[in-house]
Design a protein around this nucleic acid. Structure first.
Lengths: 327, 327
DNA sequence: ATGAAAGCGCTAACAC
DNA sequence: GTGTTAGCGCTTTCAT
């Protein structure tokens, strides 16, 4: 028998309206009454029913987060920061893992829509049009996806790619493979575009392989293909793939970075402890998660708040998977 | 303007009750009417309000998951499986990260209680009494914690520890350090107990260090302490700590496993790609997450269902951080 | 400053 | 098989 607002009202000898006000509009109620009410509420361990409250206010006090893969520390890093920032403002968080499936992704936001005040879509695989449609039905903020009219926290993938190419070019590499990730992800597109630009500028020859699933297994699969291309360096879409590729290269007795250099994106903690430690582009995961929540909260507080695409800087971390090409 | 059950009823020329039934008790309504209702519902994109529904049924269709650290792939591995299994049964999932803080943990379940049908508490740090109290207010299932009267999915940490000690003993080690984790976690206690037993049986001398925070930084910190103890092997509480320790040992130019062997628990993907790859106890994360959800769903379906403590086997994976002691 | 009462969107009796 | 209606627990006018 959960305790309701009536129980508290009865015990405190006030109306339910007063109890309600004592909790959600404390200044509207007499100091003494308020104290009495709060005391009873505390004593009874009263917690207002979010369902009942939500039914009338239209607010749920929750936000939703949808990611393509909870198995990737990149996204759980975002999640950790999202949940922490959300909780700080009293919001709960709902998670959905789309498993890289656009259909699931869409279904996930639809099914969440009614139980959250807004949703945070991470690196979505659905089309711009679908995103816009979704945004019309529920407040939406994007992470690593740029769609006009929708706020987003963006990580400067392009800049990271430029740094990577420059690094490789400076080492003397002339022909690299890019192990591409999800074809319709914004990150993959920015990286691909930046790659082409930087390659042209530095006279680097690029062979783009894939798309591969942005997982460990995608990396192991990709490694052999890259090896067949006679490149001296590989740029992996992300750390997980790079780790998979590294494992496969070791199996095939390819020395990294002696025979082949390898770079990637994310800078997971684990990138620093691999054999050898990965040269990779650090992504501002913590800031992005936090900022994405703030963007969403701002929108909830004021639906007419300006749309902002906040771009966060990235930085190449040079470790031990890159070296001048052999000979 | 969200579409309500009335809109659908009006358009389909039936009462709201019929719409309700067409959706949640299809067999109670005439085939033709049902079709018409469903057609209208689909056309309008109607989704029943979970809040309204929940208010009356007392069910939310959600479960909560609370973990100590979303930054640890062990827990996000659980999360991934929990969310997937939950979704398969139509449940949404709420996540909370307690950051290893028992007070937060308790507050998290309290604040979730009203919005979920039950909660899954992973490796909780709170006391048995508090858990029992919580369980009295909301259906609870535990993961890696044994409390009488409460169902749980348990991983056989003790067995894993025995395997580790036997492995180390067989290699010839006589004096090991255990880098302990959270003092009041069930996992840490089972490991400690099993450690003592196995050590006695094999004549292994054990020095228990810590507790350390079960993080990367806990491992780096612990490494120096272990080194000062003149042991020939280290057993870390988990992979993350082992990775941290490994990094620190490398900084200090200690050869692993040449000068020092190292084992741990979890078998994260990353354990296989570290330098050198970790000898570690594989935990049945996937099965545990799935089973924990099933235990919870069973309890929701039938509150009088028997309490079960389901223990899942673990297995030592021997890789390259263990070898016979020097000399 | 407080109370009475309407009603949020839905389900579950209860009629018919 | 379908409709009517009474609430679920709360917030919010509107009175007082």
């Amino acid at each position: 028998m959960p305790v309701t607002i009536r129980d508290v009202a009865r015990e405190a000898k006030v109306s339910v309206a007063t109890v309600s006000r004592a909790l959600s509009a404390p200044h509207q109620v007499n100091e003494a009454t308020r104290r009495r009410v709060l005391a009873v509420a505390a004593e009874f361990g009263y917690r207002p029913s979010p369902a009942a409250r939500s039914l009338i206010t239209g607010k749920t006090g929750n936000i939703g987060l949808i990611v393509p893969d909870l198995g990737n520390p990149f996204f759980t890093g975002v999640l950790k920061n999202v949940q922490s920032r959300a909780r700080q403002s009293g919001y709960g968080v709902f998670v959905g893992d789309s498993d890289e499936d656009p259909a699931v992704e869409e279904e996930l936001v639809a099914s969440m829509a009614k139980q959250v005040d807004g949703v945070l879509l991470c690196s979505p695989g659905i089309k711009d049009g679908q995103i816009t449609a979704l945004a019309a039905k529920t407040p939406l903020v994007l992470l690593n996806r740029k769609v006009r009219g929708i706020s987003a926290a963006l990580m400067d993938s392009a800049g990271g790619m430029r740094q990577s190419i420059e690094h490789l070019a400076a080492l003397g590499h002339r022909r690299c493979a890019f192990l591409s990730g999800p074809r319709n992800s914004w990150s993959n597109r920015s990286r691909t575009t930046a790659l082409r630009g930087a390659a042209a500028r530095t006279g680097m020859e690029i062979v783009t392989l894939g798309p591969f699933p942005p997982r460990y297994s995608g990396g192991t699969q990709a490694a052999d293909l890259a090896l067949a291309e006679q490149v001296t360096a590989i740029i992996a879409y992300n750390d997980i793939m790079a780790l998979g590729a590294l494992a496969r290269l070791r199996e095939r007795d390819i020395d990294v970075p002696g025979e082949l250099s390898l770079t990637s994106f994310d800078d997971l903690v684990f990138a620093a402890v691999s054999a050898p430690p990965l040269t990779t582009v650090a992504m501002p995961v913590d800031a992005a998660g936090r900022i994405a929540v703030e963007l969403l909260l701002a929108r909830l507080a004021d639906p007419s708040a300006p749309v902002v695409h906040q771009e966060l800087p990235t930085q190449l971390i040079v470790r031990q998977t890159t070296a001048p090409p052999a000979r």
